[in-house]
Design a protein around this nucleic acid. Structure first.
Length: 483
DNA sequence: TTTTGAGTTGTTCGA
DNA sequence: GTCGAACAACTCAAA
């Protein structure tokens, strides 16, 4: 019978707007019990890192506040998901559990067990899609197998048409007559101790309102010049929506519609082109989930099996210099310090630092993926995995192995005035645009005038790029020839 | 099945 | 300084 109480099991969908499970639960004409279960070990080896936990803490508080505005609240518990769901269902007399799907391998396995068990208990258990425009199994090749190249995936997605519209959430949200026990968000101990999150607080506003504000900012100031702006780390030329998307504070359906509405309003071909280039990025997110769904081993292992025998440098020193932003290459070090301070790094710089770790230092891409996982507020298994495998050349797109980023050229091209470098490397701030990209090459008098002592104030390069590139290419060739 | 065209993000060389 | 071609040849998608 309809009615009764439905548990809305919230996970990576921390929003009220455009939430399919919420809309479906509300349509049952009963009451709704919003529940978050903290169960990090169920993510197996991909437990949220410190930056992600900080974000989650803030996002849960924002969600609770939004629910209270609508006459409800967020129940918070910790423990094994199935056990908690059963306990809460009993305590609240709930007859149904609804949730939005996640696509990480460990989540899929857990959710399958949970759904089956709840149904055996006699509960209604249903899952929905609120994270993606299309399910990973929907947009596949004509022969039913998954795509491994982005462009055909994207064309096929456009050809499907009918991108779903965002769902409208009813207000208020009907609260149950009796609330089950809830822990406080503080009890989850998500906030870092000691508190190193000052930079994160300054940079971000987690939560649904913060997400929509960021989208509005980007649609107003960023999207028109996205093609150039997205490559300049000294500017806010990207949407910065990645952490909001990861936690589901905003969904792709809302974004797709907002962009198309704006494009229709502008009615200019130039705007359409800019808008499409950004929506392609949203499709890359879809593609990443598609890949992780169909190739679940790729979070740990290369998609291209021949890369399993690549000989990586097993060198803790190189890795730790990279992690701390002490490589002697300013663009790499600036990026790594931005990451450490804000939990985020500009995408252009992510490519540069990733290429540097994998090709110049020849440290395994999995080490870089791990560090990003622990430090990024937008750490997302699908995106992180695809990005690192692409950089290493072992991923879905056949990037030619000789494509090695030159950190000096990239730095000059995308931060010509050194604004980004000076911001994150204050010890180099007095160097001019000519030398800030390569301080170790500057004449002694220039260094002296700028107060920079190489090896003391700022490190000498830990590897010589030209030589490192040759060694990397040799290593790739050895691997390919099977030696 | 075979064939054909194409593939996020780069660098370097030589005209 | 700018531009096109080469890098080296592989995998994928689709006709």
């Amino acid at each position: 019978m309809p009615g009764g109480t439905t548990i809305l099991w919230l996970r990576a969908d921390l929003r009220l707007d455009d939430n399919a499970a919420l809309v479906a639960a509300a349509s049952r004409q009963g009451t709704l019990l919003p529940l978050f279960i903290h169960s990090p070990t169920e993510e197996e080896s991909w437990m949220p890192g410190g930056a992600s936990r900080w974000w989650l803490d803030r996002s849960l508080r924002a969600l609770d506040a939004s629910l209270r505005e609508r006459g409800s609240r967020l129940v918070v518990r910790h423990g094994a998901s199935l056990d908690v769901l059963r306990d809460v269902a009993r305590e609240a007399g709930a007859g149904a559990v609804f949730w939005n799907r996640r696509y990480e391998p460990a989540s899929i396995a857990r959710d399958r067990i949970v759904k089956q068990a709840l149904r055996q208990d006699g509960l209604v258990a249903e899952s929905f899609n609120s994270a993606l425009l299309f399910e990973p199994w929907e947009n596949v090749k004509n022969d039913g197998t998954p795509y491994r190249v982005f462009t055909p995936f994207w064309k096929s997605m456009l050809k499907r048409g009918n991108v779903p519209s965002p769902l409208v959430t009813p207000a208020p949200i009907a609260a149950p007559s009796r609330w089950p026990r809830s822990e406080s968000i503080d009890d989850l101990a998500l906030r870092p101790r000691p508190d190193w999150a000052a930079g994160l607080r300054e940079a971000w506003t987690p939560g649904e309102n913060g997400a929509h504000a960021e989208l509005a900012r980007f649609l107003r100031d960023g999207i028109e010049n996205y093609e150039t702006g997205r490559n300049l780390p000294s500017q806010v030329g990207t949407s910065r929506l990645s952490p909001h998307l990861h936690f589901g504070e905003i969904g792709p359906r809302s974004i797709w519609k907002a962009v198309h509405d704006l494009a229709a309003d502008r009615g200019s071909a130039a705007f359409d082109a800019a808008a499409e280039s950004w929506l392609r990025q949203l499709a890359w997110r879809e593609f990443a989930h598609h890949l992780l769904f169909h190739f679940p081993h790729t979070a740990e292992k290369p998609l291209r099996p021949e890369f399993a025998r690549f000989e990586w440098a097993d060198d803790e020193t190189l890795l730790s210099h990279w992690q701390r932003g002490l490589t002697g290459y300013p663009i790499v070090d600036a990026g790594m310090r931005e990451l450490w301070a804000t939990g985020w790094m500009h995408n252009r710089v992510r490519m540069i630092v990733a290429s540097f770790l994998v090709k110049d230092l020849r440290v395994a891409w999995q080490e870089g993926a791990r560090w990003f996982w622990d430090t990024l507020v937008d750490a997302d298994l699908a995106n992180n995995t695809m990005g690192w495998q692409w950089t290493a050349g072992c991923g879905a797109d056949a990037a030619p192995y000789f494509r090695v980023f030159n950190p000096l050229l990239q730095s000059r091209r995308f931060d010509p005035d050194g604004i980004y470098l000076r911001h994150w490397l204050p010890e180099l701030a007095a160097l001019d645009a000519k030398w800030i990209h390569e301080p170790h090459g500057a004449p002694a008098l220039v260094l002296e005038a700028a107060g920079v002592r190489i090896g003391k104030d700022y490190p000498a390069p830990i590897v010589a790029h030209d030589q490192a590139k040759r060694l990397a290419l040799d290593a790739y060739q050895s691997m390919m020839s099977g030696r």
